[in-house]
């Protein structure tokens, strides 16, 4: 039976651990993976722009020796003529071996997955899920910290619309002894369903705070997020809240030496450029990890050892 990745919870912790092990092996031995996907094609169906995720998928497939087809803008495809997601998926499976889909509407990659016979990877569906970002985050945390268990994870910024935060909380909640410090303005608090259905239900320890400075000394991971303009219905709300939490070297001064700062990127101004040189800033290493974990994922979903 084919396997898709629509939600990070589609993967068990064993499967995630195995993907991380494969990614680490790829990093150590890239040459031995250079022809693994020879004659295989990845279709990148990007209905909205996302340079970083698309390039990460494309370079992952090229480094496995495979090929890439697809579109990066829905206006250049038959979608602009009104084709349904299901029909597009059925058509693309005639040409490709695996699909990575980004779509502004929530659930679109799931619709594709139940309508075609090849693996579908959700490359982001609106404000809903972005599981390969979460895999990227997990690989980064594992590489930087050595393990997941017992970490105190601070999530800062837009915790309401930030899908990467919701997925990270879902995924990290499955590891022993993880606690969360949720740092956001009142307007961008973590949604009620994440609190009740993940944190409370699993008995995970968490606190909600307003001050980044106060939370800083206790954190092992600081996961910064961008206050995204496109998630707001109201421009005035965006302008008022976008500068709420900015990480500077001064704020970082009270952080643990081994603490790591992650960010799904792109950043706007929520992390000062002056922080980039600090060894605790792991966000560009995180981007690099994204390619390796996507390579591991493509191999897994295509059933290639």
């Amino acid at each position: 039976m084919k396997k898709d990745l629509i939600d990070i919870l589609d993967l068990s912790t064993d499967e995630i651990n195995s993907l991380i092990a494969t990614a680490e092996d790829i990093i150590a031995n890239p040459d031995s993976y250079a022809t693994k996907c020879e004659r295989k094609k990845l279709a990148t169906l990007f209905y909205e722009p996302s340079t970083r995720t698309r390039l990460s998928f494309e370079s992952a497939m090229y480094e496995l020796g495979g090929h890439v087809i697809g579109f990066s803008d829905a206006t250049n495809s038959s979608v602009s003529k009104g084709e349904s997601v299901a029909d597009t998926a059925r058509t693309v499976e005639c040409f490709a071996d695996i699909i990575a889909m980004r779509h502004p509407k929530e659930g679109a990659p799931y619709v594709a997955s139940i309508n075609c016979g090849i693996p579908v990877i959700n490359a982001g569906d609106g404000g809903h899920n972005h599981p390969t970002q979460t895999l990227t985050d997990l690989l980064t945390i594992h590489r930087e910290m050595g393990a997941f268990e017992g970490l105190t994870v601070g999530c800062c910024g837009d915790l309401k619309f930030g899908r990467t935060v919701h997925s990270l909380i879902s995924a990290m909640s499955r590891y022993e002894g993880v606690r969360f410090v949720l740092i956001s303005p009142e307007e961008l608090r973590i949604p009620e369903h994440v609190r009740t259905e993940i944190l409370d239900k699993k008995g995970i320890e968490y606190v909600e705070v307003r001050s980044l400075e106060d939370a800083m000394p206790q954190l092992d991971i600081l996961y910064m997020t961008r206050v995204q303009r496109e998630r707001f219905f109201n421009e005035a709300d965006y302008i008022r809240l976008k500068d709420s939490y900015i990480l500077t070297p001064e704020k970082l001064a009270s952080a643990k030496e081994k603490m790591r700062v992650l960010h799904p990127l792109p950043r706007v101004n929520e992390i000062s450029v002056a922080v980039d040189a600090d060894p605790r800033a792991a966000y560009f290493r995180q981007v690099h990890n994204g390619k390796y974990i996507r390579m591991a994922l493509i191999l897994k979903l295509l059933g290639i050892e």
Partner: peptide, 13 residues
Amino acid sequence: RNPRCITSIEQEL
């Protein structure tokens, strides 16, 4: 009722 759901634009689903 989610305006961001795929069902909001694909009537056949």
